[in-house]
Design a protein around this nucleic acid. Structure first.
Lengths: 182, 182
DNA sequence: GTCCGCATGTAAGGCGTTACATGATTAA
DNA sequence: TTAATCATGTAACGCCTTACATGCGGAC
């Protein structure tokens, strides 16, 4: 239930994009607005302050100018420190806590993981991810069985939706492991 | 991408619980801490201010005392106005926007829906839910096909995870419709 | 010459988070 | 009597949201 890491979801997403190649704030907004990348807001009130925080932390560096025209724009690139923080976040072991409270963070980590921490670590991640889900699903099923009779039908159905979502994630992870091993 | 309604997720969850029977803040914390009900924080810093906001809005009413002991406690019950707001929120039609940005809100609405808005409306909800998902999945698939070749393998897998999650939800909704019709 | 897309930002407000604080009751 | 549980709150902080503001450049 605790976010043990200093990286918010948005910071992670931005760091991940910028780590691949330098981008302007506007570029990032376009990525969020036009691709189904996470569910991040592309509003300037989110992006520009986030970039400023990352720059203040020393994790990205903004370079003014860049373009041939005189149009004002700032291109950001990741710094060595930023890359270290990014890698450390991606390399964190999966905890059962993550599975319950930070599933979206886990998926975001996965999306950026492979080129940064290597294939072996990615496979390990998927393996741990799947086992923690199995464990959590077992707990949810136990709970559901214990309250099945007293739960209204829609409460039960809502719970089943959650459980099936987790089961799907575990299956997906195991398929992903197979594909990545090839 | 806009939350068109005045009810935050936490407010909705609290209103839903209290609408079933009067509860204290501590009762609500226990529900959040001990059942897999949503993924709400059971921290006092979330619950008590939320109850205060609901009371200020006139949607719940707190009654002091209650218990036989002299222990200080406040029991909250929903007001007529609160019930109206709650019902109106549950009765909102499903939009494609909801499916993309507020899936968790939709599931929460569903969990409380049946006794409040009736079986017919619940079935309608599930039907619209499933169709909007179908539509959204079609869009995601088109996007995935258009970038499949240039996407790194983990990016592709992360997207597939999202798509499969949506497909699971649509299947679940159709199964739920069948079960509720019986 | 005006509208649209590019491009960057600020201000106010809402709400959740962590951490801290307090005090009563019950079980060992 | 001491620890755990019951029970309610506040304060500081972070970060996202909406809305507003500003100015350049190209297309028609």
């Amino acid at each position: 239930m605790k976010q043990e890491n200093e990286l918010s979801m948005l910071s992670l997403a931005i760091l991940g994009l910028i780590s691949q190649r330098p981008l302007t704030g506007y570029d990032i907004r376009k990525v969020f607005a036009t691709t189904p990348m996470g569910h991040f807001s592309s509003s300037p009130g989110a992006i520009y302050p986030a970039l400023k925080r990352l720059e203040d932390a020393g994790w990205v560096r903004g370079i003014a100018g860049e373009g041939k025209t005189h149009r004002r724009r700032r291109t950001y690139e990741i710094t060595a420190r930023g890359l270290r923080v990014f890698k450390r976040h991606l390399a964190q072991p999966v905890t059962s806590d993550d599975v319950v409270w930070h599933m979206d963070d886990l998926m975001l980590r996965f999306a950026f993981m492979d080129p940064v921490v290597g294939r072996e670590a990615t496979l390990q991640f998927l393996h741990d991810f799947a086992s923690h889900i199995d464990e959590h699903v077992a707990g949810l099923r136990r709970y559901l069985d214990s309250v099945r009779d007293i739960l209204p039908p829609c409460g039960r159905l809502a719970m089943e939706n959650g459980i099936q979502g987790y089961e799907m994630d575990a299956q997906w992870a195991r398929r992903a492991m197979e594909e990545l091993r090839k």
